[in-house]
Design a protein around this nucleic acid. Structure first.
Lengths: 224, 224
DNA sequence: TACAGTTATTGATTCGAATCAAGTTTTGAA
DNA sequence: TTCAAAACTTGATTCGAATCAATAACTGTA
């Protein structure tokens, strides 16, 4: 896989999102791209951690096998998710195995690469901790909005967020299909469509495909 | 609290267990012991972070409150666990509040003390990375289960998790009131009560206050 | 430019869980 | 030991959003 692609993927990953280009370069040198066919094993229980993994495509299953031989799936990894970080940083062996359940492309960021870069530059520690912490905050926010707000409020929050501090009226472009946006907001596409219609009928937004004009930012903020 | 006791407790904490006595001394100088009565607040949402916390005794609840006053419990902290690390590395305030739900003894390890140690010791860095990574993983799991599972499956998942690998039948103790558990699972107390009744009627669990006996672990895992 | 496949909208209906209400039980503090 | 407050349970009802179903409107590509 192309080095620039790997650099791109690594810098999009939350843990490295605060790193500088030179630091990403260094990391790329210690990263291996792996193609794992469906059914293939990434690591077994008891293996030493040689690094941690970032799944780019496909799907990976994490699990344990009991002494009686039955299998318990601990988690399913989707593209964009990483696994094995905690084990790596704690310098333990894996308590689980990882197996591809679809043909998978993964990046293995090696132990040496991570630890070298951590040691080589004192700013890296702060930057990585900042990246992980920002992710932590985002997750807490997500839980809060899923838990405490209805679908209308979630959509409003999202629209206000992506319109940031645009003037009134704000013109924003949805960054993905409405199916994808709906899934992010944890609602069905049908509900998204209906909520948008309601906001439109209330005179707050105009919808043209992916382009949304918030005609009344304050009104949207105070809706209901 | 006595300095030697604080030193003792800090050096037992996994994050600092590899530190030299001199480093522990340094950390102790930047640590404050707090007694928080049941119901007392450690910090509120929006407070600036002065450090992170290590719970020695009692129990602490982490949560958020919606503008309408609804509460969502994000996590329950048990003795030996730390919280508030992630906020240290962003120039932000706490996104959650922390309240003691039992009389609690906590150590507040101040920001400056931590930063000094982070610069001087690599194992602390790695363990902090591991700790926050593990917490992020847990948050992702929480989002997933809130999003993808109904209330019955969420309770079952929770019971199986806290019973871990107990034998069959497993006897577990709820770590908090049913109100708190319900909030963590994102259901109302009424629904929690009804789901428990259903599982009981299906012959899977016995409920006596906070004590739950899972009479049929396999059956519970495969319920519905 | 046509058309196949995805993406989006709209309507009817169902369902899970919240809410409202009224108890009972447990609890911890005086 | 008592008693008020908090925690919990059970029942009736409502409500938000999912599901099921049937188009309509795009979008890429042959």
């Amino acid at each position: 896989m192309d080095k620039t692609i790997i650099a791109q993927r690594l810098s999009e990953f939350y843990m490295f999102s605060e790193l500088q280009p030179a630091q990403i370069e260094q990391l790329v040198a210690g990263t291996r791209a792996l193609d794992v066919p469906r059914g293939g094993t990434l690591f077994n229980r008891g293996d030493r951690a040689h690094g941690f993994y970032l799944l780019l495509e496909g799907q990976v299953k994490l699990g344990v096998i009991s002494p009686q031989g039955d299998e318990k799936v601990i988690g399913l990894i989707q593209p964009g998710q990483s696994f094995g970080e905690a084990v790596l940083f704690l310098e333990r062996s894996f308590p689980i195995y990882a197996q591809a359940i679809l043909d998978a492309k993964v990046l293995l960021i090696t132990r040496d690469a991570i630890f070298d870069i951590l040691d080589s530059d004192v700013t890296v520690v702060r930057r990585m901790l900042a990246g992980i912490s920002a992710r932590n905050r985002q997750l807490v926010n997500d839980i809060e909005s899923i838990s405490l707000q209805n679908s209308t409020q979630r959509l409003i929050g999202y629209l206000l967020q992506i319109s940031a501090d645009s003037p009134n009226p704000a013109r924003v472009q949805l960054p993905a299909s409405k199916l994808t946006i709906a899934s992010m907001l944890n609602i069905t596409p049908e509900t998204l469509s209906r909520v948008m219609l309601r906001l439109h009928n209330a005179g707050l937004i105009e919808v043209n495909g992916k382009e949304i004009v918030i005609t009344n930012v304050a009104g949207l903020r105070n809706f209901e």
